[in-house]
Simulated assay, not measured.
Amino acid sequence: MSQPIVINLPHNLGAEEAKRRMQGGIGRLKDHIPGGAADVRSSWEGDRMHLDVRALGQEVTGHIDVMDTKVRLEFTLPAVLALFAGTIEGLLTDKGTELLEDKRPKKG
Rank of each mutant, 00 (worst) to 15 (best):
G108F: 14
E89W: 01
E59I: 13
K106E: 12
G86E: 06
N12W: 00
S2N: 13
I64L: 06
G35M: 13
P78N: 03
I64S: 02
S43I: 01
K106N: 12
A55E: 03
M22I: 14
R48W: 05
L9W: 01
L81W: 02
A18G: 02
V80G: 03
I33M: 05
I64W: 00
W44D: 02
T97C: 07
G46T: 08
Q23D: 15
H63K: 11
A37S: 14
T93D: 05
E59H: 15
K19D: 03
K30N: 10
G24S: 12
G25D: 02
V80A: 13
Q3M: 12
G57S: 02
P10H: 00
V40P: 06
K95V: 09
E45N: 14
I5Y: 05
N12T: 07
D102G: 08
G108C: 10
H63L: 11
L51M: 12
P10D: 00
L9P: 00
K103F: 08
G36P: 00
A79I: 05
A38V: 04
T61S: 12
R20D: 14
H50Y: 12
M22K: 07
A82C: 04
L92Q: 07
Q3P: 04
T93C: 03
G35C: 09
V80L: 10
I26S: 06
A85R: 13
A38H: 08
A37I: 10
R72K: 15
L81S: 03
R54M: 06
G46M: 04
L51S: 08
P10Y: 00
E59F: 03
I7Q: 03
E59M: 12
L99K: 07
T76Q: 15
H32A: 09
G86Q: 06
V6L: 14
L99S: 11
M1G: 12
E101R: 15
L9R: 00
E98F: 12
V60M: 08
F84M: 13
A37R: 12
M67P: 01
I33P: 02
R54P: 01
H63W: 14
I88K: 01
V80D: 01
G57P: 02
H50S: 13
E89I: 02
A79V: 06
M49Q: 13
R48I: 11
I33G: 04
D102W: 15
D94A: 13
A79H: 09
M1C: 05
L77P: 02
H32I: 07
G96V: 05
A18W: 00
G14N: 01
I88F: 04
L13R: 01
E17L: 07
K106Q: 14
E98I: 09
T61H: 10
G86P: 01
I33R: 05
G27N: 10
V40S: 08
A38F: 05
G96D: 06
D94W: 08
K107F: 14
R54I: 04
I64D: 05
N8F: 04
